[in-house]
Simulated scan of single mutants.
Amino acid sequence: MSNPALYNFCFETICVENRQIRNQSYHQARINRTQQALWGGIKTIDLGQITIPDHITKERHKLRISYDQHIQQITWQLHHPRPIGQVKKVYAQGIDYRYKYEDRRGLEALFALREQADEIIIVQDGLLTDSFYGNLVLGDGTTWHTPANCLLPGTQRAYLIDQGVITPQIIREEQIQSYPLLRIINALNDWEHAPTIPLQSVV
């Protein structure tokens, strides 16, 4: 859940594996863009200067950085993948999450509508956008599309687009049944680790 004390900040969630920051350049670029847009071009955060504590092992860890003009909080947590069975479509209006805001109350309200499902697909203006925890990728096992109008362009999404693995595409709600498979990606769930979910699991 969001921490009200941090609502004026943004945050970055980063995968650290083998005591190395994964996709560092993509995270650095997003932090730079965010500081440029929200805080007048101040760029004070250099991920290359982050010291990895001695207790962090080679296993996959989540590094979470809360920041504004400067780093406000850093936390470390061993990553535990979330099992995803059923996914529920929910409908949003006017959600703006172009930057990774600490204030996620709008998204949390949508997530609360999932009932017995494990994740959500957010539909806004008739278009697929994102899930609660990451970006959507839909495909047939060979060709993969990601919604072009996602709420938040993720770092793993950007990396996979650059690698030619996925392609941005406008996907309308009624087109979802033309895709047999769904994947949900984020910094901790890269292409190798992201679950593949049959579309019949979407309700």
Rank of each mutant, 00 (worst) to 15 (best):
T13S: 15
R183T: 03
E17F: 04
K58V: 12
L160D: 01
R105G: 07
Y91T: 07
H193N: 04
Y7E: 08
R157P: 08
V203A: 05
Q156I: 13
Q20F: 06
G85K: 14
I161K: 05
I166N: 08
H70S: 10
L182M: 02
R114A: 12
V165T: 15
Y179C: 01
I161W: 00
L128W: 11
R172P: 02
V165P: 04
Q36F: 07
C10N: 12
D162Q: 14
W39Y: 12
W76N: 05
Q72V: 00
L138C: 08
A92N: 09
C15M: 10
I45E: 02
W144Y: 07
V87S: 03
L128F: 09
G41S: 02
D140C: 06
Y7Q: 05
A158Q: 15
E119W: 11
Q156A: 11
R19W: 03
A117V: 03
I161P: 00
C15P: 00
C15L: 12
E173C: 12
A158R: 14
D118K: 02
P83L: 13
P168N: 00
D68T: 05
M1D: 06
D96E: 15
Q36W: 06
R114V: 08
E115H: 14
L107S: 09
T57M: 00
L110Y: 04
L6C: 07
L47H: 07
K88A: 06
G141E: 08
I171G: 12
K100E: 00
G85A: 15
S201R: 15
R33L: 11
K89Y: 04
R22V: 14
Q86L: 13
E174Y: 15
Q69S: 06
L199A: 03
W39F: 14
Q69Y: 10
E102I: 01
Y133M: 14
T155F: 08
N135G: 07
P180M: 01
I176C: 00
L181G: 06
Q72C: 09
R183D: 07
Q156G: 05
T34C: 13
N135Y: 02
P180I: 15
Y7R: 12
L38H: 03
G85F: 05
Q77M: 09
T143W: 02
W144I: 04
I185N: 03
R60M: 12
Y91K: 14
G85Q: 14
I184F: 03
W191N: 14
A112L: 11
Q169T: 04
H193Y: 07
I171T: 02
G85M: 09
S66L: 02
Q93D: 14
I95Q: 10
F132T: 00
G154V: 08
Q156M: 15
V202M: 06
Q200H: 13
G126P: 01
Q124Y: 03
D54R: 11
A5R: 13
Q169D: 01
V137G: 11
N8C: 07
T129C: 13
Q86C: 11
G40H: 14
W191S: 09
Y67S: 03
V87I: 08
F9C: 10
L107P: 04
D54K: 10
E173R: 04
T129N: 11
R60C: 15
V202L: 11
